Simulated assay, not measured.
Amino acid sequence: MKALLLATLLAQAVLPSLAHYTFPKLFIGSPPTVLADWAAVRKTLNADTGAPLTDPTSPLMRCYETNTAALTATYTINAGNIVGFKSNVPVDHPGHMSIYMAKALPYASSEAAGSGNVWFKVAQWSPTVTAGSWNFPSQGQQSFQFTLPLCLPNGDYLVRIEHIALHAAASYGGAQYYLACGQIKVVNGGNGTPSPLVSIPGLYTGNEPGILTNIYYGTTSYVPPGPPVWTC
């Protein structure tokens, strides 16, 4: 009986963490070159726990870290190449996935990079609702990639992945934010003008219909939060 009770308690202790995830790996190319954990991704404060953010106005919404920029490598990538993130475990929660970029001044390895209206969206995987049935393209997946636009200007950038988990989003503050920032230098780029530019934090209030939503009852469509995806 004691052994059964101990096993039950251990299972209860482990199960909650299985739903949590981080994005420690950056990869490029096809077939991909996968970098080591936290090599070119700023090590997030939830690296050990996987715990999400729940306040969309928090300064931590930018990259979920403090003072790790200078400790993180900046990886050089050609415009037009594939860039992606790999999570430590498959994304368990239903939700909305997006990737943002920001021109990093003065460098990607500067803690001040990403300040102000400098962020633009480059990819997203949005839920869809058909005849009352939800589909979450990011759920159960572990790798998320996009192609760097050929017209993207040269320079240092932050690449930020963000998953908004919606399983408890029916009330304000229930949405969970899982995110991380990679550091890259783009070469052989073009003369495009990324837009629209937004600030993080400042992008969300938490009241947006794609964040404050009930995926279990009454919702017949999904509106992705944030700006549209920028293309050349």
Rank of each mutant, 00 (worst) to 15 (best):
T54Q: 09
F85G: 09
G29R: 07
T74P: 05
K25I: 10
Q124H: 11
F23P: 04
L60R: 14
F120C: 01
V41F: 01
Y75W: 10
P94Q: 08
I99E: 04
G50Q: 10
P90A: 11
R42A: 03
T33I: 01
A51D: 15
T66H: 12
S110W: 03
L60W: 11
V83L: 15
N78M: 06
P32F: 00
P59M: 05
F27S: 01
Y100E: 03
K103D: 08
I99R: 00
A104H: 06
S87K: 04
A108L: 02
G29Q: 14
F27L: 07
L71N: 10
A47L: 00
A47C: 09
Y21V: 11
F120T: 04
P31R: 14
T76F: 01
P32I: 05
N81V: 07
P90G: 11
R42M: 09
V41Y: 01
D37Y: 03
V34G: 06
N88T: 12
G114V: 03
T44L: 04
L35H: 08
P24T: 07
G114Q: 02
Y107D: 14
V41P: 00
S87G: 12
V91L: 15
L26D: 04
V122R: 06
M61G: 10
T33E: 07
A79P: 10
T68G: 10
N78Q: 14
W119I: 02
V91T: 12
H96T: 10
S30A: 07
P127N: 06
Y75T: 14
V118S: 06
T44F: 02
A73K: 10
V91M: 13
D92K: 11
T74A: 13
A102H: 06
H96F: 15
P94V: 02
S110H: 00
T49V: 02
M61T: 15
A113C: 14
I99H: 00
S30T: 15
Y64H: 15
S58H: 08
I77H: 01
V118C: 03
G84Q: 07
A40S: 14
L71R: 12
P32Y: 05
L26R: 04
A108V: 00
A69D: 03
K103I: 02
K25L: 05
P56Y: 01
P24A: 05
N88V: 05
T57G: 12
V34E: 12
I82L: 11
V91S: 12
A102S: 15
V91E: 10
S98V: 07
G84V: 01
N81Y: 15
P31A: 12
D92F: 15
A40F: 00
T54H: 04
V41Q: 00
S58T: 08
T33P: 07
H96N: 15
T54M: 03
N117W: 07
T22K: 05
P94W: 02
N81E: 13
A112D: 15
S126K: 13
S98Y: 01
P90H: 14
A112S: 14
V118K: 01
T72P: 06
H93W: 08
A102W: 01
